[in-house]
């Protein structure tokens, strides 16, 4: 059995017939080949799969693709400007060395941009608490926090 799915991903209308069991992250990675969104734990714990669903940070391994029916999805591939210029958060991550292996990075960046939308001038404590749902095993978080602070200070 398949079900029709209609949604907007990174500004483009997408239509597909999918197995209703398909998770949103599977749909993004396998159907659309948007492999920038990663699966780190498949249990909603690590945050590597974080995307924006109608402007809110959501763990895409934790919802069915059908739950995004008619929604707007933004993934890491859609974050940069149309001309390819990176989003200020991406720039800040690079300048502050907020990434090492890069695997948690897309989810971390998506969470961080959502965090600043909610709270444009967060304290360090608020940043750390706000990123509590995204694990990084490489950086020790310090430079991620610095990147978010840097981005916040510039906007």
């Amino acid at each position: 059995m398949t079900v029709k799915l209609l949604l907007n991903v990174n500004g483009k209308e997408v239509e597909a017939d999918i197995d209703p069991r398909t998770l949103l992250v599977q749909f993004l990675r396998e159907n659309l080949r948007l492999t920038g969104t990663h699966v780190g734990c498949d249990t909603g714990q690590c945050g590597a799969c974080t995307i924006h669903l109608n402007g809110q940070a959501v763990k895409s391994c934790n919802i069915l693709a059908l739950q995004a029916q008619g929604s707007e999805v933004l993934t890491i591939e859609g974050l940069a400007a149309a001309n390819g210029d990176m989003h200020p958060m991406q720039v800040a991550f690079k300048e502050c060395h907020g990434l090492q292996c890069g695997f948690c990075t897309p989810g971390m960046v998506m969470s961080a941009t959502a965090l600043l939308k909610e709270n444009p001038k967060p304290s360090e404590e608020q940043i750390r608490a706000g990123l509590d749902g995204n694990m990084c095993r490489c950086t020790g978080y310090q430079n991620i926090v610095k990147a978010v602070q840097t981005c916040a200070a510039r906007s």
Binding site: R29, E30, R33, L34, T35, G36, T37, H38, V39, T75, I76, E77, L79, A80, M86, Q90, F93, K94, L99, C101, G102, F103, T105, P106, V109
Partner: peptide, 16 residues
């Protein structure tokens, strides 16, 4: 960093 930050990394599970 450019590829890792823009979703263009190429990890094993990204290969099909």
């Amino acid at each position: 960093d450019q590829r890792f930050l823009t979703g263009a990394g190429n990890y094993t599970d990204d290969i099909n």
